[in-house]
Each structure stands twice: as C-alpha cells, then as structure tokens.
Design a binder for these strands. Structure first.
Lengths: 252, 252
DNA sequence: AGTGTTTATCGTCAGGAAGACGACTATGAT
DNA sequence: ATCATAGTCGTCTTCCTGACGATAAACACT
C-alpha cells in the first residue's frame, strides 16, 4: 500500500529546552524573549522546529548549542567532559497550545554548570538566566520590581515538569554532578543539592553519604582549592550513575 | 507575522502503546500483528495516528480502548476504579524509523489487570498477550517453537523502555496496584512485584512493608478469599501514590 | 602573633528499616 | 488425621540516617 498523505493530519514538531543551572545558590533556567507573535515580547523557553532529516535529540542538541554554546554529551559518553547533560523530558501536544497551528513539542531537559553567559542570536538582552521561582510565579513582581508575565505557550508547565524531573532525579542518580565543573568539592556538590531542592543539608552527613558511595566520586589526587575556609579535596564524577540507596530529600 | 507553512517540515504524529499486564506469573505486553507493509505480518505495538483535534493523551486513551476495551482513568482520578493506568512514556523520532515517511511516535505506557481478552479490530488472532522476554528476544525460538521475529519498527526499543519504566516505578509508587483487580490480597500484590521484577520476595518482609506503609493499602473489611492456603485479607489501593521509603528491588 | 570566622572532615550515638528466618494459623486435599 | 499451601506475627542482626560534638586548615582582622 503506497504512502497516502491524506491519511493523517500534518503536524509541526518542535523541541523546547529546559536548561537548568545553579547560580548564586539558586536554581535558574534559561529564558529567551520572543521577538514575534504570538506572545511577542514575553519570555519563553528556547526551542525551534525539528528539521526534516534530524533526530529529536540532534535537534535538541543543536538548539542548545545555538542558545548557549554548550555542546551536549551523549548520555552514553562515560566521563564527565563538562558538556551539558541532555535528556528527553516529555512531549506536549494539546491542539490549542499554539494558536497558529498544530504543534507538538518534544521538551528536553539540559543541566549545565554555571559558566556560560547566555546568547540568543547574538543579542544578550533577549536571553537570560532567571531563578525558576521567578519564572514560575504567575502575576506578582520580580526582583527588579517589573511585573512578571507568565511564560509563553505552555512553557510554565514544561518548566515545572523539568524542574520536578531534576529534583527527583538527583535523588537516585549522580546527575547533580552535571551542575558542577569537571572538578569540584564535596561542598560545591552539596550547595547544588541545596539550591535544587531549596533546603539546607547537614554538611557532615552529606560528606559521609557521597564519599561513602562507591564509584560516585573519585578524588583527583590533585587536591585543594578554596571557597573560603579550609581547603577541600577535589573530585570528579565517578562512573556510577545510579545512587543506591538514594540521597534522601528532607521532608517539609 | 502570518503563519507560513513552508517554514517547517510536516510530520506524521502517532501514539504507540506499551500495554503491560501480569498473567501466569509473567509480565506480558499486548502485541498486534501488522496487516500491511512495512513489516507486514510482524508483531508490533498497538498504536495509530493522532487526529487533528486530539490531545496526545486522548489519542492514547482512544487507541487503548479500541485495542483492549479498557478505559484509561486519568492519573488525577483518585480511586482505583479498575480502569487502566496510562501515562506518557517517551517520544521516538528517528528520521528513518518508518521507511514510508517522517513519523514521530509518542509512546505511552498502560498498566492493566489480567482480565481482558485482547481484540484487534475484532480479530483475536491478530492480537495477543506475550511475555515481554519473548517479544524482546531477537532471533531464537518462542515457546511454541515458531521462530521469533523482532518487533516491527523500533518497537523493541519502545517496549524495553516501557518495561524499564514499569520496573523502576513500582519501586517508589503504588503503581503495582494497577496490575491488580479492585480488591486484592497482599500475596497477589507480591506476585505482581515478583513477575515484574523477575525475582522472589520474602512473603513476610513484603507483608510487613506494604501493610506498614500508611495509606498504601486499605482493608476492605470484607475480608477473605482463596488462592489455596489460608484465607487472606482483601485490600484496595489507598490514596498514597508515593512509597517512601521505596520498596527495594533485590540485587543480582 | 593572636583571635575570630569560615569551611572541611572525622567520630559518636540513638532510632528506624530491611534481610534472614522461626513460629503459628487457617484453609483445602489426601 | 495428616499434609501441603498460603497468610500473618515476631525476633534478631545489620545497615543507614539524622543529630550533633570535635578537630583541622585556611583567611581576615587586630
């Protein structure tokens, strides 16, 4: 039976990106300002159309590189090479999510260390890192006193889903190291957990947990650095990707 | 700026279903035989095109009802009403996954109790419950001596992802009850875990764990039934959806 | 030099949960 | 009556966690 184009309705397929990082003790997401209707001038998640010959992951990696300069490393890549972690998040396909046409968006979640400055088409004023609480609050006013408009489309929902994925996934995987540079201290890793979960963790118990889990952290031998206080050992992420038993997220 | 159809390539969007159940102590998935090319005559996961005015979840629920007669209950629905659990799994969009055209498939995972007999377009010979190991083994021979062909398209990968999702999700959620009828015993629930994980669990420790987790199981008062041996208390799924601490999957 | 501050790291202790199993109970089958 | 089968209750040991005391090694002052 030959291919019959009338047998199915055509869709546009996009990828949207939830790019998370930790800056100044807060979990932040990359937002870009929309230059055109609909939602012109509003903040949105970065994203774009999937090209005709492109895999979904390729499209997400391409958009990520275009927006941040980060190259995603394949989850298969063993060692932490300071590229961003990239994984598929979920797909959003409400018929009315884009008023122009039928668009199905395959959202991806990317986790990056703090380093990069955002750039959207070379124009820095149209891209920024914003604390996720700020992007998710509906109505009210941001830190700068400017009234906060909700994200465009269903991007608030996508962002919330991405944040929730990140929060739960660092419990039982070594994913939190994706927020850290190649070499990092136990304290830096702890501050990642604290920022992502929005809680305070006991430094001693945290240290015991992460250093006691085999394969999670490997000391780089080369040892100290500073962040104030006593020098700390430097580690890099070990081969272990699953954390068993998991790191427990405190209640309440 | 008006909508410009030439700005993006058109895609076909489908939903594919990983429908799992537990029968005769084995984790089984619903497979349908393809009636047309490509992969004519091969087994595949049930699925179909998303309609122009349909949400992705609606499309998955519709396909599920068409193939099994099961109606999915919304995850928001509180009580276990013997409908199937349905959730989005992942999206597959390799440019070459369908030789005819560019198809993006949003796979969904459904978990159902044992009861229903499969029916695909009214023809029972074109649909069956098959143990997932049998569907996933490449080459070799099935229980009936018939040579086993791999599933059509990338459905082996989708099935494997769905099985893995189910295996990990019953660890920390009450999802295993979706494999049980409305009322069930602790032993029946344990046999679900054993079938999904492919391990043996200690009946005493399992009983202590599930009855000791508040909100997980509620006794129906009406109490006994038989499955051989001493009568057991009947329970139904409680309101708790998260299992903390999780049920531990035995190693090795 | 001495003192205070900050962060890192090691240790101790009590409570909770899980694995291993023993023991007892209530059915149906022989 | 005896056995086989499942369900349910306890016990004991071990491991992990949370709470928290104590020490160590840097820097910023005075």
């Amino acid at each position: 039976m030959p291919y019959d184009p009338s047998a199915f309705p055509p869709f546009a397929v996009t990828v949207d990106l939830v790019v998370l990082t930790v800056r100044r003790h807060a979990l932040c997401a990359l937002a870009v300002r929309r230059g055109e209707a609909p939602f012109q001038g509003r903040w949105a998640l970065p994203g774009g159309f999937v090209r005709a010959d492109e895999d979904l992951t390729q499209a997400a990696a391409r958009e990520l590189a275009e927006e941040t300069g980060l190259h995603a490393h394949d989850p298969a890549t063993p060692a932490h090479d300071n590229g961003a972690h990239l994984e598929q998040l979920a797909t959003y396909g409400d018929p009315k999510r884009d008023p122009r046409m039928r668009v199905v968006s395959v959202a991806h979640l990317a986790l990056a260390p703090d380093l990069p400055a955002p750039r959207a088409g070379g124009d820095a004023s149209n891209a920024r890192w914003a604390p996720v609480e700020e992007l998710l609050q509906h109505g009210g006013y941001g830190r700068d006193g400017e009234p906060v408009a909700p994200l465009a489309f269903d991007h608030a929902q996508i962002l919330a889903d991405g944040v929730e994925r990140a929060r739960s996934k660092i419990e039982y995987s070594s994913l939190a190291t994706a927020f850290c540079p190649t070499e990092f201290t136990v304290g830096e890793l702890r501050r990642v957990y604290e920022a992502v979960w929005g809680v305070a963790l006991d430094p001693r118990n945290f240290h015991r947990k992460v250093t006691g889990t085999p394969g999670f952290l490997v000391p780089t031998g080369g040892t100290t650095t500073r962040q104030g206080g006593r020098p700390a050992q430097l580690f890099r992420a070990g081969g272990a990707t699953l954390l068993n038993p998991p790191m427990l997220r405190p209640e309440v």
